[in-house]
Amino acid sequence: MQQSNGYIITFAIIMTVIVGGLLGAANQVLAPAQKKALELDNKKAILKSVMKLEASSDVEKIYADRIKSFVVDANGNKVAGKVAEDINIRKQSKAKDADRLYPVYKFLSAADKNKTEAYILPLFGNGLWNNIWGYIALKSDFNTVAGIVFDHAGETPGLGARITEEAIQERYKNRLIFDQNGKLISVKMVKGEGHPEAELGEHMVDGMSGATLTANGVNAMLYTYLDYYLPYIKKNRQ
């Protein structure tokens, strides 16, 4: 009896229903906690672009204290009634250029809450294998890079995945995104590793050996998003 086709099919169906139901229920129950964990991770990434975070840091508190966020449209005008944290950059990147919404995170000075230390802008693009994303922080002159963070979904460990390393992200600090005439140049990661600082100048950073294709993705992502934010930057740049 146990080996009959009928028994096997019945067994398989019952098993599928039980397993599926169980996993569905677990997903429903855990979804809110997972969403919260994701949001916290996002806040951490935003803060990491401008400051060092310790394991013991209260991210929520620092974020509430130091970050002021709003949303701008493609022309750089503020959009009322939208929450920056709720904007999904991945989804926005697929929308039409004119309809896209752009979150801006202002990093306020600890001493004077009316002074902005840095403007943090999101980045989203494609690496070699999958999506890459991050945040770039620009000092209040909208030209100097205050810091940058990257993350990735599937770059090669030890090669492209190195964009998540602090040592790589440090290289972007104090680079300039505009030239003297005010033209957007962005910051470019070069091919090959070990270039002396003097050779690189203000608009280039040292590359990652063996990960030029990921670096190309990073360069394209940086330029694209700085270009998207150009109307907003131009309006606010003195």
Partner: peptide, 24 residues
Amino acid sequence: MIPTRIRIITQLAIIATLVILVDQ
């Protein structure tokens, strides 16, 4: 109760369910 002919799939389903729970 596990039919011999689909025992491997059944074992995999059990393991996979538990693993996905852990992951979630």
